[in-house]
Design a protein around this nucleic acid. Structure first.
Length: 575
RNA sequence: CGGGGCGUGGCGCAGUCUGGUAGCGCACCUGCUUUGGGAGCAGGGUGUCGGAGGUUCAAAUCCUCUCGCCCCGACCA
């Protein structure tokens, strides 16, 4: 490709709208432009990167036995009503009516469509296992799009769906995808980690997120410093025993009412009563699929909504509105407590060992002291409901854990029969018995992968692309376009590299040397070849890697062979 | 949806408080010089000051409404 015949509009200045480095650099390097909030045009160089990631994904998916197809972006609401998600997916699902007034939506994910296809086409155990994937534009009407391609509303995603006859087969499919994902991100030059994750709105029973390690990441995760346990924050289990307190044999003190005028928050109550936060129980009122539920956690700990949802087996949990809290407890927000409360009650395990604690009194300006389990109230169900903290230890081995941040670039789920049940995807087994197909689903954010790679690979001058996903592998900079010797040497090398199928950008613009250097660094092309008047006269040119500071001087005659070696070496380093 | 901020030439911004004929840098066009790390000089073009309404002799500036964007939070593969 010749630069003069191409389009890479670079910026010298940082656009004010961009906060994170990958967003800034993608704008500055002329890779993307924003159309409106969360919606971007991929400019030619950006598209090249995207395509390279897609190609790597295709290769590895095909290698893992998955089959590519392409499903529609526009989907009938009817299907979503059938799966039940029309109601539960929330406002992220962009809905509208077509001219016949039919409910319609833009696909944020494709479980419904693929399951519909499979239930029509797959009847027999002989047709499985099978795994379909596509690389396609998704639309999710995110509450708050941000950080450029990191969280867009319209974005390119690879989604795959596996179909198996039994649990064992489903596990094999899951493992195959897990392996494929590891290879994909390895080849993209990313430092990543697979962590256990909650299943969220997609549903299902088991999942891993592939996290690219980055301080600017939106997701928090923990990992064990000793064993290989790693999980995202929502998922991270609490080690049994960490919260065990010795209740002791001292008798329980009598229940006592205390006036707490306008004292609501944990800090206010504890300082007013002169107690520590772990002597208090927070009573949080939730709505879980239309049912009001009270969830109890220790005052110094934080409730984990994902765990609450799982414990209740609910589709959706939401913190109750102040009006609903008043209705359920008989008191304004801030005075809820378990004693005398009529709603269903669940509690974190840490509550079990507590003795003589403080709770709200379900009356305005009232708290209760010396409250005790069993004597004063009972709990419908106990479970691990709280957020993990740095003080906790690894749930597997008990060693120290570490907190980190990451960017979620991929997610693999075991879906089980969630969708094959609601959408009635059945097959006949060897005995001629009708059974539900066992599913898995697997996603990769393609644009986000490029953004994450930039987040991990850049310096003050710009992007330092891992070669497999760089828009170009090599750029040639003839510094004096009016010097025939320079142009000739550059053209010769350019032709030779093209002949060897190297992706090379020839900067044939009539620009000053500084401009060409700055642009090459900004765009982050991994191998830079410089041809200058002095060198050309002596039959030499320079090779420099974007990731290194040394420059290598080679003869024009050998240049293309050495460049090819360099390119190969960069690829090999990511195997 | 709650809180905060911002909309002035393609980009980055000043001007708004205190109303008086819209400016700077970069970019762009022409010419000359320059030519290995975002050149210099000279000349030039570029704006319904996000939109609508109002106050005023006069509005980028004051008032009302509205649209959009960004950040924090809630929320979310």
């Amino acid at each position: 490709m010749r630069y003069s015949n191409y389009f890479i509009p670079t910026y010298k200045e940082v656009p004010s709208e961009a906060e994170v480095i990958s967003h800034q650099l993608m704008l500055r390097a002329g890779m993307i432009r924003k159309l409106t909030s969360g919606i971007y045009t991929y400019l030619p160089a950006g598209l090249r990167s995207i395509k390279k990631v897609e190609d790597i994904i295709r290769e590895e998916m095909n290698r893992a036995g998955a089959i590519e197809l392409l499903m529609p972006a526009v989907q009938p609401g009817e299907l979503w009503q059938e799966s039940g998600r029309w109601e539960y997916y929330g406002r992220e699902l962009l809905r509208f009516k077509d001219r016949h007034n039919r409910d319609t939506c833009l696909g944020p994910t494709h479980e419904e469509v693929i399951t519909d296809l499979v239930r029509r086409e797959i009847q027999s155990y002989k047709q499985m296992p099978i795994n379909f994937y596509q690389i396609q534009t998704k639309f999710r009407d995110e509450i708050r799009p941000r950080f450029g391609l990191m969280r867009g509303r319209e974005f390119i995603m690879k989604d795959a769906y596996s179909f198996d006859v039994d649990e064992e087969g489903a596990n094999r499919s899951y493992e195959a995808m897990y392996e494929a994902y590891s290879r994909i991100f390895q080849r993209c030059g990313l430092r990543f980690r697979a962590v256990e994750a909650d299943t969220g709105a997609i549903g299902g029973s088991y999942s891993h997120e592939f996290m690219v390690l980055a301080e600017t990441g939106e997701d928090q995760m923990i990992n064990c410093t000793k064993c290989d346990y790693a999980a995202n924050l929502e998922r991270a289990e609490i080690r049994g025993g960490d919260d065990r307190f010795e209740a002791g044999n001292t008798p329980m003190k009598p229940l006592e009412e205390v006036d707490t005028p306008d004292i609501k928050t944990v800090e206010e109550v504890t300082s007013f009563l002169g107690i520590s936060e772990d002597q208090l129980i927070k009573t949080l009122i939730f709505v879980a699929d239309d049912e009001v539920v009270a969830a109890l956690v220790r005052g110094d700990q934080e409730l984990n909504e994902a765990k609450l949802k799982n414990l209740l087996g609910a589709q959706m949990v939401e913190l109750a509105s102040p009006e609903l809290v008043a209705e359920a407890t008989g008191a304004p927000m801030g005075f809820a407590g378990p004693v005398g409360l009529k709603t269903k009650m669940v509690a974190d395990l840490a509550i079990q060992g507590m003795r003589d604690f403080v709770t709200g009194g379900n009356r305005n300006d009232l708290h209760l002291k010396n409250v005790n389990l069993a004597r004063d109230f009972s709990i419908d169900r106990f479970g691990d409901l709280r957020m993990i903290t740095p003080k906790d230890s690894c749930p597997r081995c008990g060693e120290e854990i570490k907190f980190g941040r990451g960017i979620e670039v991929g997610h693999v789920f075991k879906l089980g029969t969630k969708y094959s049940q609601t959408l009635k995807a059945l097959f006949l087994d060897e005995q001629g018995k009708e059974r539900h197909i066992i599913m898995g689903c697997y996603g990769i954010g393609v644009g986000r992968t490029v953004a994450a790679a930039i987040e991990q690979n850049h310096d003050k001058d710009g992007i330092i692309f891992p070669i497999p996903i760089s828009p170009f592998e090599v750029t040639i900079l003839p510094l004096q376009m009016h010097d025939a010797a320079v142009v000739e040497a550059a053209e010769k090398t350019y032709r030779e590299l093209l002949d060897h199928h190297i992706d090379v950008l020839m900067d044939d613009r009539d620009e000053r040397a500084g401009v060409k250097f700055k642009d090459a660094d900004l765009v982050g092309i991994p191998v830079r070849v410089t041809v200058g008047s002095r060198g050309a006269k002596e039959g030499q040119m320079e090779i420099k890697l974007r990731s290194e500071s040394e420059t290598m001087i080679v003869s024009i005659r050998e240049a293309s062979a050495i460049i090819e070696e360099k390119v190969k070496g960069l690829y090999d380093s990511l195997k």
